[in-house]
């Protein structure tokens, strides 16, 4: 490389750094500094109004004896384990149907994607109350056949299930990604499979799924992390309480309660770091296990 071209590249590098400064400043001030501050606060007793007081591991020890903490862990784990696979399965099913060249594909794709845009909004959470509430659509339907249903949102056995349904319903985002992945699978592979006598199920099992595993893996990671951080729906539907009887007390809702209702920011910070660690571990496990089931075309 000549000195002139090196100079040119250096100049380009400098320009790139200049353009990156706003992002770097934003990252530093809005993400990195608060992140480090919350790590410090996790080891303090801090009520916002008074200076933080160093308490060492006390906040983490407190979690062990905190019934609400364990309730929130239980609810969040059930939600992640049930809603993510259901949502991905549903999204894949719809993507397969749309991939078969339906007329009006663009309309259906947009229509199916719409709930993903609205899924975390207050309006959808309110709509859910209108559907699953005591006087909601479902109970009105049941009343027509003589069944008196109670509010699905106020029954601890069904409240979480309604939120899982809500999450599954917002399948649009993974569906679009699945659709993009399906379009990348070469037609020749299907033709070859057909020539070998493979039916639709065998084609799906031996061609589609293996070649789609990177996309499945990608969606799994994204949706798992998103499910761990679910907040808005539970907050609106339970009025911020996590009720009935803690059945919708998601982990992030509990962090919010501690931080912004009880103003126990030290404990809330500790809870947040435990969540981050849990998500990091789960994501790392996903990557570790991925080498046994994710197939990259070049491997």
């Amino acid at each position: 490389m000549t000195s002139r071209s090196r100079f040119y590249l250096n100049r380009q590098g400098r320009a790139a750094h200049v353009f990156l400064i706003p992002w770097q400043l934003g990252f530093l001030l809005i993400t990195a500094v608060p992140l480090l501050a919350s790590l410090y606060l996790a080891f303090t007793n801090y009520d916002i109004l008074n200076p933080p007081e160093w308490t060492g591991l006390e906040n983490f020890q407190r979690m062990i004896h905190d019934d609400q903490f364990w309730a929130s862990v239980r609810v969040t784990l059930i939600y992640v384990l049930v809603s993510v696979p259901l949502q991905l399965a549903f999204a894949l099913l719809l993507a397969l149907i749309l991939d078969r060249g339906l007329s009006g594909l663009a309309f259906y794709r947009s229509a199916f994607y719409l709930p993903s845009l609205l899924g975390s909004s207050v309006a959808i959470a309110i709509l859910w109350r209108e559907i699953f509430g005591d006087d909601g659509l479902i109970n009105k339907g049941l009343a027509l056949i003589g069944i008196h249903g109670e509010s699905w949102l106020q029954n601890p056995s069904t409240a979480l299930a309604t939120l899982i349904v809500l999450n599954v319903w917002t399948f649009g985002s993974p569906m679009v990604i699945f659709l993009a992945g399906l379009r990348q699978i070469p037609d020749e592979l299907y033709e070859a499979a057909r020539v070998d006598g493979a039916g639709i199920v065998k084609q799906f099992r031996h061609v589609t799924v293996p070649l789609l595993t990177p996309i499945i893996f990608f969606n799994l990671i994204l949706q798992t992390i998103g499910a761990f951080q679910t907040f808005t729906q539970a907050h609106i539907i339970s009025g911020g309480t996590g009720g009935p009887a803690n059945s919708t007390l998601f982990y992030t809702l509990y962090i919010y309660q501690q931080g912004f209702v009880a103003f126990d920011m030290g404990y809330a910070s500790a809870l947040a770091w435990v969540l981050m660690a849990a998500i990091a571990v789960v994501t790392a496990l996903h990557f570790l296990v991925s080498k046994y089931w994710v197939f990259y075309g070049d491997s």
């Binding site: 990604i177 993009a180 992945g181 990348q184 070649l211 789609l212 990177p214 996309i215 990608f218 994204l222 990259y296 075309g297 070049d298 491997s299």
Partner: peptide, 14 residues
């Protein structure tokens, strides 16, 4: 999909 394609999808979404 190869690794490069996977990275493209990830980056694009990000």
């Amino acid at each position: 999909m190869d690794r490069r394609g996977f990275l493209k999808v990830s980056l694009g979404t990000g």
